[in-house]
Design a protein around this nucleic acid. Structure first.
Lengths: 160, 160
DNA sequence: CGATAAAAGGAGTAGAATGTCCTTTGTTCA
DNA sequence: TGAACAAAGGACATTCTACTCCTTTTATCG
């Protein structure tokens, strides 16, 4: 995994939220996590940060919950990552050779640049809309193939 | 960082080893870590695994140390990563949507494929030779620019 | 042989990451 | 107004990561 666990939850949570109508109306956390493996209370913390970052809006009390702060197609993966991990993360060099950055490049830095640029572009252009769509397609697929294959696929858990 | 810390140390350690003659003769850990920030004892554990994986050879006793088990230009980043983190790591989906792999793709998986392929190619084609070269170039550069700028660059620590 | 040298391996530690629980705050509805 | 409801926030528990230290094994040299 490229991101931290909180960021992964943020991404999955946003996707679920959008898929469950969170673009239009508040969705409760208790509803959001049904049928997922998302840890409710931990996700609550993550969502708090997304609220503070302006990607989500929250409403307390009856009829409350979380909803997207702007249209799903205007929220990119990059924004979600920045909100949780901070912007440094993606820019960091794969190789991990110390004391090397854009201002003070090393050859590896330049070799890795095309990879990094492509990754950044992907993160910039992929939006919550895309994620929700992916989720929907996959859920349909899972429904067709059935539970046995899924159980079997758990062997490759971690390799998504 | 894309890798785990042990893998980062493995990569840096291999680069240092190669740069200090480890392609031709054994180099002691105590010598290897001089002038680096590599944690000696922890790196020892990491190197043990590289020995077991067949990327390094070790020799005990006087005149002992570690050396590359094969020519530096035949040891790729991919092999080092596989030796420490295991092969699953790079294949894992950026997005972290559960239950999705090459056999059971989801749309995101396909969108991310070009990025992943490029990354894999980079990891396959970059060798310890390249790393050692990078290290040498950077060290020369550091010598020219001097200590003050390096101190300053610590602000961006983590963003290499 | 024995002294020294170096990696191998086991065991333990500190701190961070992850996850849970409980109380507080604010909102809505009857 | 007050009862229920849902997020906010604090405090805690647990697990994992990143080290460190110490002993053991193996090799070399005098």
């Amino acid at each position: 995994m490229i991101f931290t666990t909180p960021t992964e939850y943020a991404i999955r949570g946003m996707a679920e939220l959008c898929g469950r109508g969170g673009a239009d109306r508040p969705v409760m956390l208790d509803d959001l996590v049904i049928g997922t493996t998302l840890p409710r209370d931990f996700l609550a913390k993550v969502f708090q940060r997304l609220v503070k970052s302006g990607l989500l809006k929250s409403a307390k009390g009856r009829g409350g919950g979380f909803m997207l702060a702007k249209p799903a197609n205007l929220i990119s993966l990059e924004e979600i990552i920045n909100a949780i991990d901070g912007p440094i993360h993606v820019d960091s060099c794969v190789v991990g050779l110390a004391k090397c950055n854009d201002a003070q490049p090393c050859p590896q830095h330049d070799l890795y640049r095309p990879v990094r640029e492509r990754l950044k572009e992907y993160l910039k252009t992929t939006t919550v809309t895309d994620l929700a769509e992916s989720l929907k397609t996959k859920q349909a697929w899972v429904r067709i193939v059935g539970a046995k294959t899924i159980e079997k696929s758990k062997v490759t858990n971690g390799a998504y």
